[in-house]
Design a protein around this nucleic acid. Sequence first.
DNA 1: CGTGTGACCGGCG
DNA 2: ACGCCGGCCACAC
Length: 110
Amino acid sequence: MKAEGDFFKMVFEVVKLVPKGRITTYGAIANYLGTRSSARMVGWAMNKAHSQTEDIPAHRVVNRNGMLTGKYHFGNPTMMEALLKKEGVIVKKDIVVDFKKKLWDPTIEL
DNA sequence: CGTGTGACCGGCG
DNA sequence: ACGCCGGCCACAC
């Protein structure tokens, strides 16, 4: 694994590694990073992702319910659903359909 | 150096 | 089944 200091960079790495049409959860990433109890840090890192110059597909990251919790952070709440839909992920009432099936867990996949 | 905050999660009432 | 509360860690002010 990498250095701990690059916690949030690592989050971006994982998020960027998420295959198109798949989604992951904050908890999964947190667990992968070893901070299982502190999934908030993952979400919080995503907040910082807005500042990053790299394009972080944060729309592929949802909470464990499969709900688009961070959609309000995209500028327009509709953007997140639109992006997901574009990638083949069906979103209904802010919830990802077949979320469990499309879930891409780094701890399992990697 | 101390305090606050956060796109969450899991457990308990 | 639903709602509330605490925990946990990193970063900004």
